[in-house]
Simulated scan of single mutants.
Amino acid sequence: MKASFIRRFLKTSALVLVAAALSSCATKKFGTNYSTSFDPPAKPVTNPSAVKLKLSTGAQRVYVMQGNEVLLATPCSVGTASTPTPHGTFPITSKVATRRRVSSPGAGYPMTYWMSFYSPAYGMHWGWVKPYPCTHGCVRLPIKSAQKIFNMVKVGTPIHIAASHPEDATIGKTLPVLDDSTLADPPMSYMLSAQVFEDAQKGKIYNY
């Protein structure tokens, strides 16, 4: 009787453990979501004059809006507490797909799909994305997000930057956490070459 009970107990316990393991495998996210593979869906712009951008520095989210409709939503990285991304409403003042950093250190480093706002020193552009504020005030975007947003906005498109936006509680919550902190930086020979911009046109960066 005891031996039979123990056998049944062990068999039931094993089944429970197997089921738990399968459930864990089905729900656990293995690895890291890198910005290089993030490809946000985008609805077409039908009324360019109604397009505006919303940037939430608290949630680190950018929303391309047409009226009250979200056309594209993406994670981003914003400025740190000591070098914050400015709040307010500003127009996009310039667009340069193949811009490079002009100041040192890092002169020549690509700032692909550059869209300036506030002043010539602040802009949105491709860059390594992390799940915490990490820039000197600029807004880093995944490569495919930067490419799509660049093609959706024009000089004069307004960007409203605030600590939060209503979209943070809806579509913003569905976006993945992106973390490029473990990605190796491509060699400078590549970053300083024309190839980096050719790859950007394909929505990629280096071999990622």
Rank of each mutant, 00 (worst) to 15 (best):
K2Y: 13
F9K: 14
L10C: 15
L10Q: 14
K11N: 11
T12F: 13
A19Q: 03
A21R: 02
S23Q: 09
S24W: 12
A26T: 09
T27L: 08
T27I: 08
K29T: 09
T32S: 08
T32L: 10
Y34E: 00
Y34G: 00
S35P: 03
S35H: 01
D39M: 00
P40E: 05
P40G: 07
P48R: 10
P48E: 09
S49C: 07
A50Q: 14
V51G: 11
L53S: 06
L53K: 05
L53E: 05
G58N: 10
G58D: 07
G58E: 10
Y63L: 11
V64Q: 02
M65D: 13
G67W: 06
V70C: 13
L71F: 09
L72C: 08
S77A: 15
S77V: 05
V78C: 03
T80C: 13
T89H: 09
F90Q: 06
F90C: 04
T93Q: 08
S94M: 07
V96Y: 13
R99S: 07
R101C: 14
R101S: 15
R101F: 08
V102R: 14
V102S: 15
V102D: 14
S103E: 15
S103F: 14
P105Y: 09
P105G: 02
Y109R: 08
P110H: 04
T112K: 00
Y113D: 01
M115T: 07
F117Q: 03
P120H: 04
G127F: 00
G127W: 00
V129D: 02
P131S: 04
Y132R: 04
Y132T: 06
C134F: 09
R140P: 03
L141H: 11
P142W: 04
A146M: 10
Q147F: 04
K148L: 06
I149C: 02
F150H: 03
N151E: 13
M152L: 13
V153R: 04
V153Y: 00
V153A: 08
T157Q: 02
I161S: 01
S164V: 03
H165W: 11
P166S: 01
E167D: 15
D168T: 01
D168I: 06
A169V: 13
K173N: 15
T174I: 02
L175V: 02
V177L: 11
L178Y: 02
D179V: 01
S181Q: 08
L183S: 00
L183H: 01
D185K: 15
L192G: 15
Q195G: 07
V196G: 12
F197R: 06
D199P: 00
A200P: 03
A200Q: 05
Q201P: 01
K202F: 04
K204H: 10
N207C: 11
N207R: 15
